[in-house]
Design a protein around this nucleic acid. Structure first.
Lengths: 205, 205
DNA sequence: GCATTGTTTGACCAAAAGGTCAAAGCCACG
DNA sequence: CGTGGCTTTGACCTTTTGGTCAAACAATGC
């Protein structure tokens, strides 16, 4: 593929097709578990053709992670210091649940990366992510200090939101196995459970 | 290796060494990401020697999973229907946190397996695990009906305990990256946060 | 309609990885 | 102290896999 600009129509289309296929394969087999042949087959392209658009398997994976990271932080960014505290937190929970519903593969891709020790995105976690979390934790701490939320460790509050919402994407198989075949969408009940949980946790007084 | 009984001293020792090495390698690289050579090296044995004790890479992995499953359910089994409801739930949270602290590799091994779609343990999830969870969920539902716990979906309550406690083992890298180098053991603060969380969530009245 | 640039692929390569085997080494016990 | 079974290993085999390359095949612009 050519160097910088000048992406043709075909390039745009095929890069998108490959990314979609790679997301499917990487998210369900992990980086090492995925093969380039698998991705190529999923994308409906030949392997050399795929490697014409990305220089290596690593590069495809990196591309996915970069794209993901770009949108992964948005829901937290949207936490508004000027808003009503409990509403803001619940809205954040809601946004995260929507992501687990609409982008479970992205969530699993991310989970895989972290589980392996985050070899490729550790700098980003220590930098961009930490900065954002620290900033929003400070906002929450302010709300608590003002008596507008019940006191609790803001960092662990954020961790608990991540953990609980992503659980339904990452551990989907287990959730469904335990709930049984009668439950079509575990996230529906999960959402009202989580609203209750965080409301009781954070309501002042 | 020989067939059924008659495990010699050396066999016992080497099987244990291999299991330990394999846990280390599988938990940090996943099944596909781990290589037999890596495990052999970690165990301080030659590859053929390792394959003298286990017939295949698959078999080692299966052995680990089976061993793990055996102890994985114990903390939930110990939830006592005759105990004080809130204390029982908090004690369960405590046990799960202890496991995240003492057996993070086992937790990651399990997480890896679920993330890949639980190919090897799905039957167990749908059988043994579901049965146990249903049973304990019924106990919790009884407590709630009797007004001894605030009402909430018992299944999702259990999921939330799993999710929150395992998060600190599985996503350890992320937690540490965000908290920064000043925090030695995130689980200390996590435990008091979680006690608060479930106390507020479940206290009746 | 042709030259230039972009796209696709069959054939191929080297390295990695799971696994085998025969032979050698070791150990326990009569 | 020697024999039979247990343990260990170097060498080897096969398959999988990431990646290359030259040549064929489109598309685009003049």
């Amino acid at each position: 593929m050519n160097k910088a600009q000048a992406t043709t129509r075909i390039q745009k289309r095929n890069v998108a097709i490959i990314a979609e296929a790679a997301l499917e394969v990487f998210s369900s087999h992990g980086f090492r578990g995925a093969t380039v042949d698998q991705i190529a087959k999923e994308a409906g392209l030949s392997k050399p053709n795929l490697l014409y658009y990305f220089p290596s398997k690593e590069a495809i994976h990196g591309h996915l992670l970069a794209t993901l990271m770009d949108t992964w932080l948005d829901p937290l960014r949207d936490l508004d210091p000027e808003g009503e505290p409990l509403d803001e937190v619940l809205a954040y929970v809601h946004r995260k649940i929507e992501i687990s519903r609409s982008q479970p593969r992205e969530s699993r891709l991310f989970a895989n990366e972290i589980l392996q020790g985050a070899p490729r995105i550790l700098p980003m976690l220590k930098g961009e992510l930490k900065d954002l979390v620290d900033e929003k934790a400070e906002v929450i701490r302010g709300w608590m200090a003002a008596g507008r939320l019940a006191p609790a460790d803001p960092h662990h509050l954020i961790f608990s939101i991540w953990s609980l919402t992503q659980h339904y994407a990452d551990f989907d198989v287990q959730v469904r196995a335990v709930l049984g075949p009668g439950v079509a969408d575990p996230l529906i009940d999960a959402e009202s459970y989580l609203v209750t949980l965080f409301t009781r946790m954070l309501s002042p007084g």
